[in-house]
Design a protein around this nucleic acid. Sequence first.
DNA 1: CTCGTAATTTAGATCGTTCCAAATTTCAAG
DNA 2: CTTGAAATTTGGAACGATCTAAATTACGAG
Lengths: 345, 345
Amino acid sequence: MKQAKVTVVDVARAAGVSKSTVSLVLQGSSLVNEVTRARVGAVIRELGYVYNRGAANLRQSKSKIVGIVVNDLTNSFFAELAVGMDMVVQSAGYIQFMANTSENADRQGEVIASMREHGMAGLILSPARGTTAADLRPLVDSGIPVVLVARNVPGLKVSSVVSDGHAGAMAAVRHLIELGHRRIAFLGGFNDTAVFDERMRGFRDALLEAGLDASDELVISSAPSRAGGVVAVERLLSMADRPTAALCFNDAVAFGACDGLRSARIEPGVDFGVIGFDDVIEAKTAVPALTTVSVDPQGMGRRAAQLLLKQINAGDFDAEALVATVRLVVRESCGAPQRVRELTA
Amino acid sequence: MKQAKVTVVDVARAAGVSKSTVSLVLQGSSLVNEVTRARVGAVIRELGYVYNRGAANLRQSKSKIVGIVVNDLTNSFFAELAVGMDMVVQSAGYIQFMANTSENADRQGEVIASMREHGMAGLILSPARGTTAADLRPLVDSGIPVVLVARNVPGLKVSSVVSDGHAGAMAAVRHLIELGHRRIAFLGGFNDTAVFDERMRGFRDALLEAGLDASDELVISSAPSRAGGVVAVERLLSMADRPTAALCFNDAVAFGACDGLRSARIEPGVDFGVIGFDDVIEAKTAVPALTTVSVDPQGMGRRAAQLLLKQINAGDFDAEALVATVRLVVRESCGAPQRVRELTA
DNA sequence: CTCGTAATTTAGATCGTTCCAAATTTCAAG
DNA sequence: CTTGAAATTTGGAACGATCTAAATTACGAG
């Protein structure tokens, strides 16, 4: 069953040429004669030769491997992000190491170290909570291109692709205000993260701009998950002066909020306005369809991957910070009637 | 910025020993003297030496890399599967190439070829729709362990880990019958896949067992996605003799079915029984909580990875077919939540 | 001291490719 | 025929580790 592997030397012998010639054929060089190329090609197929990229990489000291490390693949947002990266990485002829860290910074450190040993050409990282600049310093100092995505790490001079959370949150809150809401909450997310902070500031600035209450009690943090959304909305419902709408930290929280509202017999999109953040794939088909700030995770993933590949190909490069623009997608959950939306669309 | 990379020879020189000794230290051999080991270790840290696993693999002709190829990472079920694999692969000191095929068999072929060139030690594959035995034959003939997961490829003698769709579907339908439903539909999924066939036969067998109608019109296939669920349930609602409950191909379809029911003002779990398949992470927190056949995707992923690692370590091995047992998790969407029953009793 | 054995260390070949410099072949013009 | 340039082909040294077999050192006993 197990076959001895065939190498360029075997191919060379069988084709009656030298290994150098075979190598030339392999890289599609124009130096080699047409008929030789054909003969070698035939032998390659016949013997079932498999190119050993590891050996080539060793000689050339470069690889076509990138690393992708993500904090939580079970979250659709990050899964989509990964899929976007996958697309451009694959079609550039690269292949990826991919690992999930489950928000564990230690594990993240281990997998990055392992990827380094395996000779990755660059890394796209959606950092785990608690990642410090010091964790990544050795890697970036070694000259390997690194692109941070979705989240930033303060104090580290590397490229990044993040969404404009402040602008997105402002747009969402302005829309709720236009719909007539006067008391609006911010739901979910851990309040010690940069992303939370940015979105929350956008929320607050929009309220202040309209002269509305923006006090701390309106900000209810929780885990940035569906379950967290349920918890947060329960806290909200127990408030004395109950808000009539909420901007949620992300779509997962928004779905959780809808669940929580419904089990309290409050119909989201009718009795209470809910807006999410991220525009996860389910947002469109959920009932009610989720009004959300679209950040196009696949698109972000693609841009991050493109940026990384650019830096890999450029001999040297500067850190570049891309801010993905963001767009409010009005659907049903905010209380805007669908009919209006269709007419304007 | 870009540092010349340091090799064992550099370390050896700096520590005043030979490269062989450094190599011995690297692999934690007990042959090397305590104080030498310490000295070399210190130099390694001082110079920021990074082990070149590629070079080692070349010499040893084996690697600590496995391939994971998944048909659709944006589907929670497969994302969870991947996360489960990731866990055991990581903690076994392996690292994974991971790629998404978007159900594209050609792309799947390319990434597998690429992974092979990079020297993976084994492959876990959740095959894209339309994968044939011939596509995989060269790989398995080369002696590289392959484990198929979630879906099987007929005519190929390799290991696999799949869930017991027939038993799961029967359990689900029996439960609906116990609840008093007499006309039950099967919703969603492409009817040319093995998984569909298996679950659908379970559905049918349970109906026949109870002497109920199991005619073809009760089986409504569609894309196995949330959107597909909406479509399927619309077809169902237009039937003359309308069913009162449905078993869905998977949870995504079930969620879509709930969406569709609700927009027709039919409350899932109250006016209509819905059961899903897979027990995706959102199933528990959705409203109504989804009654579903739990297949524990993370667990399946873990088992698949364990099986693969076992086969990698065993010099030779036989194909092994694991069937993950399955368990009906009764929640609310099937139409008779404990709570309601108590209230109405 | 000398010797034998155990404990350490090491030189050099090797893994499968690429790449340089040089060798060989081809071929049209003189 | 020569001959020189262009077109092809090739030997052998890398790349950075491991591994084998042999060399060196240490050390307790005689």
